[in-house]
């Protein structure tokens, strides 16, 4: 019987050095999936607004708790990050931005943009509510 040699396998995930462009690609999928389930929150909020004031108040109360705020913060960041990542995809669809330097630059802009925009939005939101404890 012929000796069994380990057959060559195509390289899989764990063989690559983590790179920013790769992480951003994964982040696009993960944020997309998170937003998918996040639409449950959007629908819940809209249904509450279409119901009586007490129910809406309860949803607002939940969104005001630490857990609620964390979920909302995550949702905001995911939406902005995924949106900017989507714009990156649309740029690539035109055949532009695919060079090594541009890819790196776009990945950085994606991450930096989503974090700073989320911060700006939340600071604006907290100012509108008038302090972290507001409803």
């Amino acid at each position: 019987m012929a000796e069994t040699r380990a057959r060559p396998l195509s390289p899989h995930l764990q063989i690559y050095r983590p790179m920013l462009t790769m992480l951003m690609s994964i982040a696009h999928r993960v944020t997309g999936a998170a937003l998918y389930f996040g639409t449950l929150l959007v629908a819940w909020w809209l249904i509450a607004a279409a119901s009586e004031p007490n129910y809406y108040g309860a949803v607002q109360w939940f969104m005001g708790t630490v857990v609620g705020r964390l979920v909302l913060f995550g949702y905001t960041w995911a939406l902005i990050h995924h949106m900017l990542g989507g714009v990156r995809h649309l740029i690539w669809d035109t055949g532009r931005g695919l060079g090594p330097a541009e890819r790196e630059w776009l990945a950085r802009a994606n991450l930096f943009g989503s974090i700073s925009l989320t911060m700006v939005l939340w600071i604006a939101g907290v100012l509108l509510v008038g302090g972290a404890g507001g409803r």
Partner: peptide, 9 residues
């Protein structure tokens, strides 16, 4: 964001 502080009505 613009709805954050507002009540149901």
């Amino acid at each position: 964001v613009s709805l954050i502080g507002r009540n149901h009505a």
